[in-house]
Design a binder for these strands. Sequence first.
DNA 1: CTCTTATTATTAAGCCACTAAATTTAACGT
DNA 2: ACGTTAAATTTAGTGGCTTAATAATAAGAG
Lengths: 402, 402
Amino acid sequence: MRSFGADTRMPTVAAVLDLIRERRTVSRVELAEATGMTQATMTHAVRKLMAMGFVHEVGKARSSNGMPRRLVELVPEASYQVGIQFDRYTAVGVVIDLAGATVVRRDLPGAGDRHPEEVLLEYAGAVDTMLDAASIPREKVLGIGLATHGPQDRGKGVLLTPQPSPDWREFPLAARLQEATGLPVALENDATAAGIGVQAKADAASNFAVVFMSGGIGAGVIIDGHPYRGATSNGVELGHISVEARGPRCACGNRGCLDMISGPAGVTGQAMRNRSLISRLGLGKDTLTDFLAIGRAAASGDAEAEVLIDTSKQHLAIATITLVNLFDVGRVVLAGAAFAEFGDVYLDALQEDLDESVFMRHVHSVQVRLAENPADAPAVGAAMVVLRDLLESPGEFPTPAT
Amino acid sequence: MRSFGADTRMPTVAAVLDLIRERRTVSRVELAEATGMTQATMTHAVRKLMAMGFVHEVGKARSSNGMPRRLVELVPEASYQVGIQFDRYTAVGVVIDLAGATVVRRDLPGAGDRHPEEVLLEYAGAVDTMLDAASIPREKVLGIGLATHGPQDRGKGVLLTPQPSPDWREFPLAARLQEATGLPVALENDATAAGIGVQAKADAASNFAVVFMSGGIGAGVIIDGHPYRGATSNGVELGHISVEARGPRCACGNRGCLDMISGPAGVTGQAMRNRSLISRLGLGKDTLTDFLAIGRAAASGDAEAEVLIDTSKQHLAIATITLVNLFDVGRVVLAGAAFAEFGDVYLDALQEDLDESVFMRHVHSVQVRLAENPADAPAVGAAMVVLRDLLESPGEFPTPAT
DNA sequence: CTCTTATTATTAAGCCACTAAATTTAACGT
DNA sequence: ACGTTAAATTTAGTGGCTTAATAATAAGAG
């Protein structure tokens, strides 16, 4: 059955808000040009946003003659959104303002082997701490975006995967966090969130893919400004595509999965078979920490570590070429904790391989970039989801008086 | 720059027309339920379609009490659309009626090494022949859909690829065919067209991928009823993803491309290195003919041919798993001339591998099917594109008098 | 200083696609 | 004949946009 009801188009006010954030200072005329709508419509959209207190006029543009353009800007402190991204090994919490700027950030402990209830209560506490630290009044906080790995039911706010432990499957993540904090909670795939987080930045394209590496590998595709969500609203499972046809079986059932070869678990697993490497780098902590240690060693010339990272790079390049060939995007952005420290090492390798292997490269080039803040992008993106949801569901805000 | 103007939503009349075709005989109440819109809206939509002559009332449903539902049906002969799909080796022309039924079909010669002008003139002649054969009046023909391989600019109606020969690049395909026939022409990617063609059939899902194999391998993804088109409106380049990390370089720049291993060119290329196979199967004709001969031989127990086809199957399965993992679709449909004869051999292998390797299989199953008419699906889909374009662009038809 | 010109912003009127609610139509049972 | 029930239609709106007219604002010309 086809679904007709859901209108995937971004409502005008939301689009205008995004544009104002993107351009920082902008006139109504420019907004009209950028959206393809009329100036009259921009008058209305800007008026709505002003009535919400989200934007204000900040002056006039110089012009040779004629009425000068009146410039509008966001009022960053008009609202705040919380974003939390976590997986087994690591977690990041942020509070962003309306302009998308990170006001507070905290590294948080990953979920580890704990029960979801315990983890959520810790994060709920972190939300309080962060808001207090920046002395942000609760009524200005629109909600919390929660970015996690794996298949999920965004509507219900639950994970569909039994990882890290069976307790997580169907556990009411969104509902419990909402209860514990008193704030609305939206669930989002971490790689997709990273895509949204990257999109919020200044020179963001509207067609790109994020390759996300933290505990595992995933991808988020933003196409024509909208996140791609398959049939069941999930992320793009880049980590479980085969990059070694005769590779070992992965727990997912597939052979030679990218995650097993290029991901932190795969690289660390390889390293743990090498005694000298273990003692030299002091391995044996959690997977991500070990992976970062290996990466640092490779960057500073450790030959054995280099071999491991090279393998990881090469296979990630294969997968990224596949991703680009299938989705036909013009840019790839690297994000996630695993890229935070030496993402540029991966970047160069990817760019080189893409330049010679992407099918569409003669029609358009494909650029690889590192996210502005690789480790925070998913949390920031999750926080942005809150705002988007709000603006896309009509009637949440009082319509301004005419 | 983000684009806001384009509304990706299918207009109501188009959606209603599709539903009527899908259900054959249907009441306004059912249409309202299926679309999620009100009965009043269905009254209007059906009235418009009746004013166009596209649907008519055919009777009333029995009901215990209350006003009986008035049933509407398509008027199949209200309009006709032409579809032509071609590549280097093969081509198919069809005329379909409004109900999507194939009224005429013709096998046509592929483009071969000829100049585009010559090929187009031949196809233009075929259009005339087909329309005459079914004695279809010209004014009832809405237009021609042209499905071809490779990167293309659908807006301009030109190919962006210099294949089969450099003459094709930027050659005004749509414009010239339009001139030669006097009918509007829409260009479409062949794999995407196959998706649209499959979708038109009775039990079509709204989320699926088509794996298309004719001269080469491609894919079309239909998500939420709409074809996925990347940043540059192209198909999903399944044929050029790597399925053998250390495989030979392909002309596209990538290594171990699916097309080189599983595609007709790859399989035939392998076969041509085997003298006994060549003479036994009488190879040496064009690539697709040879491939079909090898497939038939494998099906009837030729051991050497079986090895080749098995390799092809296995690697196609790897690529299909990748496709499903990345796009998260619930169904895969096989289409294209190469599957027309022994597609079921591929189907079983794919289903088996997908069942044990797709990441989301615990959340939802993935079914593999053969298209109803594998060889014709792209041409039929191309023909449907004409109708869609017409209904989605407003003001093409006179608004019915109230 | 006033008038013209160029440009931007706002308002007014209206269109389009849809909805909600009231009304009409068509069958049935008593 | 009369009520009951359900479907279809009409009516009157609504929301989000457009076009076209109008108002505001500044630079430069005279």
